[in-house]
């Protein structure tokens, strides 16, 4: 979780395209380690994307989202220099927030 989220936001024709790559194990809790002990679940439960201060996407995830989740969406508006922020919270209460300029 130390590594920064990779976010790319590009505005074209009045629509901003956002692609984000988060760094997270997304452990389902169903797997077992080499000794057969279950690996506790550890996954992102909520993702919020903001354009400046406005929420443009609110996502709720289960453990079925792949490891190091990739998210791609588009919102109307957005101009060069605007800020796109992506935040996540996981089931252990850990969180991360990173932003980028369009």
């Amino acid at each position: 979780m130390a590594s920064r989220m990779r976010i790319r936001a590009k505005a074209a024709d009045g629509v901003t395209e956002v692609k984000a790559l988060m760094s997270h194990p997304m452990e389902t809790g169903q797997r077992k380690d080499a000794e057969g002990n279950p690996i506790p679940a550890h996954y992102i439960t909520e993702v919020t994307a903001l354009h400046n201060d406005k929420v443009v996407l609110q996502a709720y995830w289960g453990a079925a989202v792949s490891q190091n989740p990739f998210l791609h969406f588009r919102f109307k508006g957005g101009a060069e220099g605007d800020t796109v922020t992506i935040k996540w919270v996981d089931n252990k209460g850990e969180s991360q927030s990173d932003d980028t300029k369009i």
Partner: peptide
């Protein structure tokens, strides 16, 4: 996964 789409966001997601 569930995605709440506010007005102004295109009804498109990819994960």
């Amino acid at each position: 996964a569930g995605f709440m789409i506010p007005e102004g966001t295109e009804p498109f997601v990819s994960v």
